[in-house]
Amino acid sequence: MKLSTEELDGGITKVILDGRLDIEGAAAIDLKMNVIAGSSKLLLLDMQEVSFLGSMGLRSLVVPSQAVRRRGGKVAIFAPQKMVEEVLKASSIDALIPIRHDLNDALAVLQA
């Protein structure tokens, strides 16, 4: 599981996730995600290249998202693959972290 970041205009941190967010993948990114969540208030989670998401991976998204929200920030998920999105929706995460497939829509969620 790979994680990289890109700073966008407007103070948005784009977190690019690549690989399987299974137990092993979640363990690989947990610390980095928590560090990012501690320093950014607007988080765009780019999930285009995430090919698998399980409950441990959900935890890796939810915990830092909670931290960002508690500091008055916002989080959006960008372009998850079909089955990954099904997992997000089955877990009701989509009701809490907006999912957008258009980049401008995702940025608008954060800038609103």
Binding site: S55, L58, R59, V62, Q66, A90, I97
Partner: peptide
């Protein structure tokens, strides 16, 4: 829970999935 992200439990998704 599903009302607010601050109350969403990070675990407990396994069996529903």
């Amino acid at each position: 829970a599903n009302e607010d992200i601050d109350y969403l439990l990070p675990g407990g998704h396994g069996m529903p999935l």
